[in-house]
């Protein structure tokens, strides 16, 4: 079970969208550039004036993965070992998200495969974007 999430000012729109089963990523309209994790300023123009949230298609590919056997987070330790994959979004492969790849056997991860976003509940009910391999 993932830890619960307490949305803060910077990330509240991301978590609110997740609760509505939508994936949004921060975008600088000036630079036309997505960035994740979100930040107070655009990583390119360094201005925070043009940051907005943009809904994503919710599809991507598995770029890479590791298998976690010794995790620092107490709530996850009973689930060890587990996959932690890096997903690159189809909307912009420069944008990466982590995933436990629910439904994919441990250490049997099809690198390069297509995935689609799903939303799962964390310990306090906040929904979290996760990714499932498209069969």
């Amino acid at each position: 079970m993932k830890q619960g999430v307490i949305p803060d000012d910077l990330t509240a729109p991301f978590w609110s969208a997740a609760n509505e089963s939508k994936l949004v990523i921060q975008n600088c309209s000036q630079c036309d550039r997505l960035q994740h994790p979100p930040a107070a300023d655009c990583g390119l123009c360094k201005s925070g004036d043009n940051l907005e949230w943009k809904e994503m298609s919710g599809t991507g590919r598995i770029y890479n993965y590791g298998v976690v056997h010794d995790c620092p987070i107490r709530l996850l330790q009973d689930d060890q070992p587990f996959n932690v994959a890096v997903i690159m979004l189809d909307d912009d492969p420069g944008i990466q998200m982590y995933s436990h790849l629910p439904g994919t056997p441990v250490d049997d991860v099809p690198v390069g495969s297509a995935v689609e976003v799903v939303f799962e509940e964390s310990a306090n009910g906040q929904k979290i974007p996760e990714w499932k391999v498209v069969k």
Partner: peptide
């Protein structure tokens, strides 16, 4: 949570 939820 954006980066640490997955326990890497």
């Amino acid at each position: 949570a954006m980066t640490s939820l997955w326990g890497a």
